[in-house]
Design a protein around this nucleic acid. Sequence first.
DNA 1: AACGTTGGTCTCAAAAAGAGACTAGCACTA
DNA 2: TAGTGCTAGTCTCTTTTTGAGACCAACGTT
Lengths: 136, 136
Amino acid sequence: MAVNASRKPVLDGKECDMSGWDMNNCPVRDVLDRIAGKWSTLLLGALARQPYRFGELRRLVPDISQRMLTQTLRDLQRDGYIEREVFPTKPPSVEYRMTDLGRSLFEPLSKVLLWAEANHPSVKAARVKYDESELA
Amino acid sequence: MAVNASRKPVLDGKECDMSGWDMNNCPVRDVLDRIAGKWSTLLLGALARQPYRFGELRRLVPDISQRMLTQTLRDLQRDGYIEREVFPTKPPSVEYRMTDLGRSLFEPLSKVLLWAEANHPSVKAARVKYDESELA
DNA sequence: AACGTTGGTCTCAAAAAGAGACTAGCACTA
DNA sequence: TAGTGCTAGTCTCTTTTTGAGACCAACGTT
């Protein structure tokens, strides 16, 4: 059974020690399950820049359905990341803007987005390599 | 139509200027759609600590199905975040460990996890507030 | 001989997401 | 004045994704 070789921690604990985390029923999951959706980060990224109206967001993210746009915005609002304000124009217009909590979340989150942008080539290369070794 | 009030940028551009990002067909989406899955961050968090075998991961995350565990690990492997090594024991055992790319991703990602842990109370409070105002 | 262990795959049911029609009230146009 | 478009959604239907659980083969243990 002594098969496994190097089981040293990858992070040194100063960076982020999550050894005490209970994977089941843990606050991190509770929060992350919401912001990990397909559209959440995208909308947070947009609203971090400036407030937008419903239709503006729809045009900004062309391949989102109205259904998912509504639902994702509701979820983000419920968790306190964005605010919704209705202006009594005819027809009524609705503006979404980030809250302080949302901004606070987006600070570390933006670092991940920047990492994704910077390392996209590496990921694409890894995919090609994997796919080549698979068809063998 | 001059309804919308404050449309000033939320971030000052030094933090993270993504105003030039194309929301559609953008590298960030391509990378993020993979790590934004329900189980991805959880598995990355575990493997950031140390290498694990298939069965160990399954026990570590009790409510994941074998099917999704297999699939998520494959996806993470394909994108180059983790490595898979088969040991020719009987029955064969398989170990998963993080790559350098995975560790590089987990650095900013862990900051988001820490944020989630720290701000869980705020999020829960926001949910309660939202739900109360809804049933009115 | 029966059972547990390994890391999966396969099938079927349930949940989630996408596509598109539909709404109301007003403004603008023909 | 009738027709059209705008707003921010909701409702229904179909497709995709996910979850639950059975099954596999070969070996070790009891």
